[in-house]
Design a protein around this nucleic acid. Sequence first.
DNA 1: ACAACTTCTCTACACCGTAGACTTTACATG
DNA 2: CATGTAAAGTCTACGGTGTAGAGAAGTTGT
Lengths: 229, 229
Amino acid sequence: MATPEKSNNQKSARKAPLSRDLVLSTALALVDEEGLDALTMRRLGQELHRDPMSLYRYAANRAALLDGVTEVVLDELTIFPDDPDWQAQLRRIAHDFRLMALRHPKVMPLLVTRPLSTPLGLRPLGTLRPLERILALLIDAGFAPADALHVYRVYYGFFYGHILNELQEYVVDPDESEAILRLGLHRLPAKEFPHLRTLAPALADYDGAVELDRGLTILLTGLATQLAA
Amino acid sequence: MATPEKSNNQKSARKAPLSRDLVLSTALALVDEEGLDALTMRRLGQELHRDPMSLYRYAANRAALLDGVTEVVLDELTIFPDDPDWQAQLRRIAHDFRLMALRHPKVMPLLVTRPLSTPLGLRPLGTLRPLERILALLIDAGFAPADALHVYRVYYGFFYGHILNELQEYVVDPDESEAILRLGLHRLPAKEFPHLRTLAPALADYDGAVELDRGLTILLTGLATQLAA
DNA sequence: ACAACTTCTCTACACCGTAGACTTTACATG
DNA sequence: CATGTAAAGTCTACGGTGTAGAGAAGTTGT
């Protein structure tokens, strides 16, 4: 009786009803593999073996779909405001975030841009959670709320900037990276870009983790010095 | 003889041939006024009283057009690598850049995102010029080239991050800003976002210039301390 | 006057997001 | 079982998009 031998196994889950989670994670996978432009309603529908229109049950429109993807990605982060050593915490969070960014480089433009079109208070909750957590962390560590906000701003500012920097210098195929990079830089007129050209090798072997950590050290050093005064 | 009484004055410059500069600056104006989505080939053509297709003489495709807009915007920046006081220079550049960002907030997503899709060496020259200038500035100030690169990365990273942060908290209509902001934050579940809600007033009166300067101080302090060791 | 070249326009195609009406499916209740 | 109701999915269609390709119009040099 019952379900007529429907193979709900690995490959073509044709009948199981959709869910917001399934839609969003499929969307994320699609973006990871083929980039933001590939994420169209039609294409996503095809990926899920559904009519594109059915997606509108789970996201009001394409913009909402994009917001959903950013939420899914941010959910990969876990922030425990417990550890009393806030500096170590901030370091850990930054590195976690960095890894997440490298896992989903194609999503970062979204993560960075979407908030610009939505006033802070109206953003999807998943987006605001990291902010709240970090504030909690700092306040628990003894900062006055207003100071916590300032520290957060400096920290998050620096941090987002680093990610963007790193992704900009990130080259897809690491084998050819040096060749391509130098080739690209070689294209620059020597007269106008002497330093950039000279620094080609230095640019080529970029270690994001080290760079990030160095930046954090500078930042935290500065913070400590500043707070002492 | 000569030109048959063509009114090439203020309003409808119908006949003068287009130029890349004209196309790009019109595109910029359009984006400034109505946002990125309004910048379509058809719309821009209409703005210039030309067939949309004519634009392809001046930009290979829409992506190139976007790159062009970022170049125009970056051209508003002037960096003189002369002043020996590099810290003051970095401060000034940051503030200049900030003002530029506030002048063209709708362009910032472009400025931040476009480079992510183009390997460093292949980017439009206008985009790389600030980088070269800042490197020159630091090297002239006595840094070893490799160190200059590190300083640049930390500085620019922090700096881009600040801009994003500020634009995120930027509210369009300053009269309603507080109301909207609080309203938005009030929407948040009190249980999950206690700190964010408490900090609503602090979020409301954000002074970008002060915040930026404070961040720079922290950064430069940290740098000095770090370099001393 | 003619030719060569640049600039601009026309037409057409494939693809996009999504409104609105419809069909199918699942399930609770009599 | 039959039937009513709500949810899930589909179909069709509309106005918009970027841009290929062929041609028209305008400009310039000889």
